[in-house]
Nucleic acid binder design. Sequence first.
DNA 1: AGGTCGTCAGTATATTTATACAGTTTATAC
DNA 2: GTATAAACTGTATAAATATACTGACGACCT
Lengths: 149, 149
Amino acid sequence: MKKKERHQLLRKLVQQDVIRKQEDFVDKLHERGIEVTQATISRDIKELQLVKVPAQDGGYRYNLPPEMNYDISKKLSRLMRDAFVSIDTQREFVLIRTLPGNAFALGSLIETAKYSEMFGCVSGDDTVLVICRDEESAERFQRRIISFI
Amino acid sequence: MKKKERHQLLRKLVQQDVIRKQEDFVDKLHERGIEVTQATISRDIKELQLVKVPAQDGGYRYNLPPEMNYDISKKLSRLMRDAFVSIDTQREFVLIRTLPGNAFALGSLIETAKYSEMFGCVSGDDTVLVICRDEESAERFQRRIISFI
DNA sequence: AGGTCGTCAGTATATTTATACAGTTTATAC
DNA sequence: GTATAAACTGTATAAATATACTGACGACCT
């Protein structure tokens, strides 16, 4: 296992799992049979510029570098302008319709952005369903998404 | 000194000074005659969702929450579209020209965004001069700025 | 072969950060 | 007023993170 590969993996992990502390990374890697220590993770985090963000649930979680988020934000903006059709809320659900074939990409971006209002997200061909934490979150989320257009 | 005020101050400090660790906050507040301990700062940071970002210089610095940066990025984008006139580099300097009266606002935004390429920044009425770390940074910085248009 | 340089990672530890607990103040109800 | 609860902070310490130091490994020489 080379450093480069590990870095790749860390980026992936930080996006798909909730990493609260560096030991979580160590554990995840151990699960995959990769031996590393917290010290190495600390150095990796420094190189990758991952950040520990205080989360809305009172905990903490590691995240991609803020700069990357610019990119995500930009991509989201571009995609929304290109493929957005409509958005609607119903209780804690937000339904976003896109031009056919674009929903999956949009869903991925939304997932990566990890909005705090969001609880989960499924996407089909022209529809993204976002499940928020509650009704209020759903409205806030809708406003956010609209602001990208 | 109420918590609210302190939070305001922390936001200001984190933007205008380089805060490497929580003790730096404590020191800055002491300088202003405000008594606080690291524990309080830790809790404040959690509430304000400030993040400790690995910096390009090998150190660390605290920053505004990534979400806020979206805003800054958006504002920058809007202002650039509205007021941008031209941009040019010369060695490690980048000169941005804007419509009269807009340079100061643009400079402030650029300062807030704290681009790693940037060393310093002065703004007049229709001109922002950005001093980068070196020639390469200057070019990278120019590309970045252009991408906002 | 041996020698030198550079990268990388572990161990041990220093440094930094988070928090349990307790005390104080401030708001709210009675 | 007094009682009770909630918000806030410091102290002490636990927990988490960063790093000095060291050794291992490989690349590239002579």
